[in-house]
Design a binder for these strands. Structure first.
Lengths: 163, 163
DNA sequence: TATTGTTATACTCTATAACTATA
DNA sequence: TATAGTTATAGAGTATAACAATA
């Protein structure tokens, strides 16, 4: 029995970009969810372009402006950021004067955050551009699908239904 | 005008976990998509537990078994993995005897991959557990919602509609 | 010249555990 | 003892550019 030369016959038609199937994997919610998120972010960064503030930082800044005086740990939990990493993120924002940290008298272990005037300016300068880029990155979805995506995502994240 | 003591009054009621709103951010498709993906993966890893193979590696292995003899670069593109990183991943799988690399005669620049017998055994041992964990991580969705999620994700990823 | 893959490297993200200070 | 946050560090994942071999 001759050693078969795999190389030629097995490759036919699969080398091209077209006919790649992933089988069962394509029915895995977690897998497609991840690919979708990567695709969306890739597009988002292309549209959003370079900025003086990171998305993660800007997200914290925005979330903070919606919840003035929130505790650092609570915000970290909501945004799925580990406390240890939140510390660095918050420090970076504080160093640039975008947020302020306060130690409340009633629990001096905790740190309470707020957006400074400079932080508010940063938000004004960036928010609209960000939302526009975000919507553009998902421009393949019509409004109904976009709403569907948000409803499904909320459910997966365990967030309350309506809001 | 006295310096206001922010600390006490501004914090009331926001220190708790309940009433955190993210405002406009919650209507950002990209943002909620990311939170959803993180939540799902967190849950997935909890259910899936420790394994002798990484998810990224197992994904490559599975994709490979669906596309025997696919070129390394093509697979990398589909899975959104950079070529430079794919090299390491493939090397690690080859070192463990799970896949084999071939240089096809008709294009000796390229590398063509295939799953070995050991690789197939690994798939048999892990696939079912993985799919079960995946579905469990998304157990808050009913079947219709799960199908919706996959359809939306495919669309976002730019994959063909029906399959 | 363009393409396929490799190497080396750096940078961001994320995870863990030990630590402090307060409660 | 438990909680809020910090520090240090390690690890995974990702990105970039220079490179070799082949087309």
């Amino acid at each position: 029995m001759a050693v078969r030369k795999l190389d030629e016959e097995d490759v036919e038609g699969v080398g091209g970009k077209a006919a790649v199937s992933l089988g069962e994997l394509e029915k895995s919610g977690g897998f497609v969810l991840r690919i979708a998120q990567l695709s969306a972010f890739e597009r988002f960064f292309t549209v959003f372009g370079e900025s003086e503030i990171r998305i993660s930082e800007f997200t914290v800044l925005l979330a903070l402006s919606e919840n003035p005086g929130i505790r650092q740990g609570v915000l970290a939990d909501v945004l799925k950021i580990k406390w240890s990493n939140m510390t660095k993120l918050v420090r970076a924002l504080e160093d640039r004067g975008l947020i302020a940290r306060h130690i409340p008298h009633d629990d001096r272990r905790s740190v309470v955050l707020s957006v400074t005037e400079a932080g508010k300016k940063q938000i004004d300068a960036t928010a609209e551009k960000m939302y526009r880029s975000d919507r553009e990155a998902l421009s393949m979805l019509d409004d109904a699908e976009h709403a569907q995506l948000i409803a499904l995502s909320r459910k997966i994240a365990g967030w309350p239904e309506v809001k």
